[in-house]
């Protein structure tokens, strides 16, 4: 029986499937960081303008996720972590997901341009193209550095929240200046980097077909770069004592987990693992994947904590 015969005439996709295309967990982080950028940015922004801007950024990020899933449906179907996604599982067709992503991209960029300013809208559009086109289509399939370079997409869209000209635009620029280092550091940080990469690499091996360039085993040098960058806002006066405490304590925890990951054998290529035989090697990597997962989870927590510290300081007047 062919695929055309088994497939229903009309799509049976539910609205929930389309919502899953937006990667709601990623969206929630986007909303949180964008809202923090708004609160901390100098100058007053109309709350309604701000709320609509955050909504546009969230929908734009979701649209990029939908395009990513549309483009990667076949590969996602091969990996355990992603095979339940709507396109990979066949609940939403590739063309439908693509159309959904394109329409939401256009609407979110257009509305952000009308609501805030066209610079912000242009940056949102650039982010979507960068993530869905450059990262998904080019980087991810060609280089082990894909998540290092691609992680920058996460730093693009969130902080251009100043509205209009004059003070609004200044607020937008200031928000960029304030948050980009932290955001970029968190996005490019080895936690997201190695955690995601190692997990993806592991599942790629499980699938035995969805092979992607996998980053080499954890390199503690990157953690040594990341932690000072995360602390830097406190040193240059952007963050106050709360931020300093959170960034230093979190940084120590982060370094500890990075060291634990480095000492583990997670991410070693199976043929380099000392175990005998490919199956044994895979199981070995799997058993050692916990440090990678822990570091990945902690990197997200660290990012949230850094932004929460900025938020607390801004709301309590403790910030710089």
């Amino acid at each position: 029986m062919t695929d055309a015969q088994t497939r229903p005439v009309l799509s049976t996709a539910q609205p929930e499937d389309y919502f899953q295309l937006l990667k709601p967990r990623v969206m929630s982080l986007v909303v949180f960081t964008a809202a923090t950028g708004l609160v901390v940015a100098p100058g007053a922004v109309n709350p309604l303008v701000a709320a609509i801007a955050v909504l546009c950024i969230a929908v734009g990020a979701g649209a990029a996720g939908a395009l990513n899933m549309a483009l990667e449906g076949e590969t996602d179907a091969l990996m355990r972590r992603t095979r339940g996604r709507p396109v990979a599982a066949g609940r939403v067709r590739k063309n439908e997901a693509m159309a959904f992503g394109v329409i939401l991209s256009l609407f979110s960029v257009m509305l952000l341009g009308m609501n805030a300013n066209w610079l912000a809208a242009g940056l949102l559009a650039l982010t979507i193209v960068y993530y869905a086109g450059f990262y998904t289509l080019l980087l991810k399939r060609r280089t082990p550095q894909n998540i290092v370079i691609g992680g920058a997409a996460g730093a693009f869209p969130r902080d251009r929240l100043g509205g209009g000209d004059g003070p609004g635009a200044v607020a937008g620029v200031a928000a960029v200046r304030h948050h980009l280092p932290v955001d970029a550091a968190a996005q490019l940080g080895p936690g997201a980097l190695f955690g995601r990469r190692l997990r993806q690499g592991r599942h790629s091996d499980d699938a035995g077909g969805a092979r992607r360039p996998v980053h080499p085993p954890a390199d503690p040098d990157l953690s040594l770069v990341f932690v000072p960058v995360a602390i830097a806002p406190a040193v240059v006066g952007l963050g106050g004592p709360v931020y300093l405490a959170v960034s230093v304590l979190g940084g120590l925890g982060f370094l500890g987990l990075a060291l634990r990951l480095y000492r583990s054998r997670a991410g070693d290529e199976p043929d380099k693992v000392e175990a005998v035989g490919r199956e044994a090697a895979l199981y070995d990597v799997r058993a050692q994947a916990k440090p990678a997962r822990d570091l990945f989870a902690f990197s997200i927590l660290y990012l949230m904590a850094l932004f929460a510290a900025l938020l607390v300081e801004a709301l309590s007047g403790m910030g710089a």
Binding site: P8, V9, A13, Q14, Y18, I52, F107
Partner: peptide, 28 residues
């Protein structure tokens, strides 16, 4: 199943369009 799914999708598309219209109005 197909009819039910289409009905639900149409409902959410309508809600989305209404929300978009409200957002454009507020922005204006």
């Amino acid at each position: 199943d197909e009819l039910n799914a289409r009905k639900r999708r149409n409902l959410f598309i309508a809600l989305g369009l209404v929300a978009f219209i409200i957002l454009v109005f507020l922005t204006t």
